[in-house]
Computed example of a mutant assay.
Amino acid sequence: MKIIVAVKRVVDYNVKVRVKVDNTGVDIANVKMSMNPFDEIAVEEAVRLKEAGAASEVIAVSCGVAQCQETLRTALAIGADRAVLVETAEDLQPLAVAKLLNALVEREQAQLIIVGKQAIDDDSNQTGQMLAALAGLPQATFASKLIVRDGMATVSREVDGGSEQLSLKLPAVITTDLRLNEPRYVTLPNIMKAKKKPLETIKPEDLSVDVTPRLKTLKVSEPHTRNAGAKVPDVKALVEKLKTEARVL
């Protein structure tokens, strides 16, 4: 069984993002970049499935600029067997990424596609669902537990009323939640081994996919500054402020 895992290069979650002076987007110049945390969980789960004997090959895929090779090398260091970079300078939106992944799924004949539930830069939470629709495959989102056996995937996911269990016939699309696993620490020997693993670079044209943006960002701005809070000495003073200042009582 082949597993395709999609990984995205994003601003590191420890970095405080800044908006460009002209309000056209987020400033990523000289900013530390890393793999999207949800995608890292997806790679870890795919590697665990291979280690358990449920999969034969794990293919990491990224779409974007040439620097995404660094992200793919991280996926290879975690345990992916090979990587594919769909290189383009276009501002890729979820639908374009879903189309590229769909083309690669057809090319590789993958039986399981695992993606992070969302990216921490745009928080779209759309790519996995769009991919499932384009490919005509069953999907399970926000997976907190995954078992693959006998051509079926059993997925546990959290819902408002508790937990839900889904049974999907492979091939299928799974999106990962934070509780699915804890990614392993990437060791130096594995980083060195990753440099020797195959990394293929192709263009969207090679997959016959049009990645022209369909949406236009008009303006990006910083959130409004919040006023500082105030301490009150007792409950009576709190109730008085809620009545006179906040006017919620």
Rank of each mutant, 00 (worst) to 15 (best):
T201Y: 05
K32E: 14
L131T: 11
V97K: 03
A6L: 11
Q67V: 10
K2V: 01
V148F: 00
G161P: 05
K193G: 01
V211R: 05
P37H: 07
S34C: 13
K145P: 03
A42I: 09
V11L: 14
S221T: 12
R18A: 12
E40G: 06
D27S: 00
E40I: 10
A46T: 02
P37S: 09
V159P: 05
V61C: 07
D206R: 10
K193D: 07
F142V: 08
V65N: 11
Q93F: 08
I3Q: 06
L146A: 05
N30M: 02
D160Y: 10
D12G: 09
V26H: 06
A75V: 02
L188F: 15
A110N: 03
K8Y: 13
R107W: 02
R9Q: 15
Y185T: 05
T187D: 05
G116T: 00
L101Q: 06
Q93V: 07
V31M: 09
L134T: 06
V5G: 13
R9S: 10
D22V: 04
R157H: 08
K196N: 03
T74D: 08
A75I: 01
A77L: 01
L146W: 06
P171I: 05
Y185S: 04
A54D: 12
K169P: 06
P198Y: 14
L215R: 10
P213L: 00
P138W: 05
V173A: 11
D234A: 14
Q118K: 12
P233I: 13
G53Q: 03
R149C: 12
A42M: 10
V61N: 05
E108I: 01
T225E: 14
E164W: 08
D210Q: 05
L134Q: 13
L218D: 04
H224Y: 09
T176C: 00
T71I: 12
L72E: 11
D160G: 03
Y13M: 01
G136P: 09
K50V: 01
K195I: 01
P37C: 09
A110C: 02
M1T: 11
I59R: 01
V10G: 03
R18S: 14
A54M: 02
R82H: 07
M35R: 10
P94L: 12
E245W: 06
Q165S: 11
L137E: 07
L100W: 10
P204R: 13
S163G: 03
S163T: 15
P189F: 07
A42S: 14
L85N: 08
Q69V: 13
M1Y: 04
L242F: 13
P223L: 11
N36T: 00
A46W: 00
P94H: 09
V17G: 07
T217A: 01
L131W: 10
A246T: 09
E205C: 03
K16P: 04
K16D: 06
V11D: 12
A246H: 11
G128E: 08
K193T: 04
K99D: 10
T244L: 13
T201R: 15
V43I: 15
T176H: 00
K203N: 07
S62W: 06
T71L: 09
I202G: 07
V43L: 13
S144C: 15
A194K: 03
K203E: 08
I78D: 06
L76H: 04
S34F: 12
G161T: 12
V31T: 13
D81P: 06
D177Q: 14
N14E: 10
L112H: 09
